[in-house]
């Protein structure tokens, strides 16, 4: 037992250490790819709390992402407030909106496809509102003022700091999910996912915990928004609130395995390189690489309908 535990930890420690020293051995292009793997793994892990564990399928996490990006950027742009502080304010703004969306949706008993479409609509409402707000830059978005190498303002010279920030974000979100998974609230989440009625019969206030799940997911997702804004130094409503953001976030979890701790990470480690590889193989000429990407998504659904990670788990429990 103990040996097993050590060995299990060994492989995690090995992976952890490799990733920790990796940026010094790879070029900036691969650093960028790794940053995006971590970044999406983080966002997808946040999504996983609400949609994977609690089973409330969100198509609108872009709402929280955009709020995080806009809050920190607007505060920095107008008041020169460091995004390090702004990102926490953004997280609380997203938390408030998240709790509101959760409260409204679950108070009226939205479920499944209805909840999914409602979240999509909320994100779209925010996108259109920001598009029409001149204070927020409107369609012209916000170009974050360049300050050079200013770590206190979340601006760095190279990519390595971003690499570690995104890495820490991914690891800490996974730890948070790990803790939630093993806590009382996590059991409630899973109980709600499996069968809401019986969870209620056992005395779980399903509505309350679903709202909590939305809040946690919103709060954490907002940090990703600030990271995005500081990494690209430019945001506009379509880039941050657009449906494609929500889709990109959830695809990682779905591919990897919804409601599993490793799912979002594995999904992200597959999807981001996959996009790069298809573009690499088919070249930038006609969109064949996008076709291949779409086809691969379809094939995963048909042959691994629970995601890659559970598929492997199933295979191995069978063979061993």
């Amino acid at each position: 037992m103990l040996q097993e535990a050590v060995k299990r930890h060994l492989i995690w420690i090995a992976i952890f250490l490799i990733l920790l020293i990796l940026p010094f051995f790879i070029g900036t292009y691969l650093q960028h790819i790794m940053i995006f793997i971590f970044f999406y793994a983080y966002l997808s892990q946040c999504w996983n709390i609400l949609s994977g564990y609690t089973g409330q399928f969100s198509l609108g996490n872009a709402a929280f992402f955009g709020l995080g990006a806009y809050t920190s950027s607007v505060l920095f742009y107008y008041f020169n407030l460091s995004p390090w502080i702004g990102m926490f304010i953004g997280a609380f703004v997203a938390l408030a909106i998240g709790l509101f969306i959760g409260y409204v949706s679950f108070h009226f008993g939205l479920k499944e496809a209805f909840f999914a479409l409602a979240t999509l609509a909320f994100a779209e409402i925010l996108r259109i509102m920001f598009l029409n707000m001149p204070v927020m830059g409107g369609a012209q978005g916000i170009l974050i003022p360049l300050k050079g190498d200013a770590p206190l303002l979340f601006q760095f010279d190279g990519k390595i700091p971003f690499y570690y920030i995104s890495f820490i974000m991914m690891v800490s979100s996974t730890i948070i999910v790990y803790i939630i998974e093993r806590s009382k609230i996590g059991y409630y989440f899973k109980a709600i996912h499996q069968n809401e009625e019986s969870a209620e019969a056992l005395g779980v206030n399903a509505r309350k915990y679903k709202i909590y799940a939305t809040g946690i997911s919103a709060f954490l997702t907002a940090f990703g928004g600030t990271f995005y804004a500081q990494y690209f130094m430019y945001i506009d409503p379509n880039l941050t609130f657009g449906p494609s953001v929500s889709f990109d976030i959830m695809l990682r979890s779905i591919i990897g395995g919804v409601g599993t701790l490793a799912g979002p990470i594995i999904g992200s480690f597959i999807l981001t390189p996959l996009g790069e590889i298809t573009r690499e193989i088919f070249g930038a000429t006609s969109g064949i690489h996008m076709m291949a990407y779409g086809a691969i998504l379809i094939l995963v659904c048909l042959f691994m309908p629970r995601g890659v990670y559970p598929w492997f788990r199933q295979r191995f429990s069978k063979s061993s």
């Binding site: 695809l251 979890s253 998504l297 659904c301």
Partner: peptide, 14 residues
């Protein structure tokens, strides 16, 4: 449901 959505999204892109 997520697999169904993924499939139709894949079909959409394709």
């Amino acid at each position: 449901m997520e697999i169904q959505i993924l499939l139709t999204l894949g079909l959409f892109i394709f």
